[in-house]
């Protein structure tokens, strides 16, 4: 059994701190009501996208592995499903603005 490297302590620490910062920012913004609703939603989405990238690069090792083809295929499917969840929910829930 060969022990492959799975990132260093440094990269894990950086990823961990980044992911915590990206979680705390929206929480603080929401709790202290620091922004207008539209700006708030945009900021939260931006933080979510950054969080997604942090997870991919620091914890899921998207660049590593002997066969990146599997990684890319899984990533494409994952992105398709994430887009479906987010865009689908926005589309389905858009009726809400008409009834409220």
């Amino acid at each position: 059994m060969n022990q492959e490297s799975h990132g260093s302590v440094k990269s894990y620490t950086i990823g961990f701190i980044l992911s915590i910062i990206l979680t705390v920012i929206p929480l603080v913004l929401v709790l202290n009501k620091m922004m207008s609703p539209t700006a708030l939603v945009v900021t939260i989405i931006a933080m979510a996208v950054l969080q997604f990238l942090v997870q991919l690069f620091f914890f899921m090792h998207i660049k590593e592995g002997e066969k990146p083809r599997y990684n890319v295929m899984a990533l494409i499917l994952g992105v398709v499903i994430v887009v479906t969840i987010v865009a689908g929910s926005v589309w389905i829930m858009s009726f809400n603005s008409q009834v409220q």
């Binding site: 499917l77 499903i81 479906t84 589309w91 389905i92 829930m93 858009s94 009726f95 009834v99």
Partner: peptide
Amino acid sequence: SVLAFFTWVHHFFTMGAGADV
């Protein structure tokens, strides 16, 4: 297994999300 992710609204058609949805 892929299409399964694109059918969920049929459980709540009566929510009234609109004809397009």
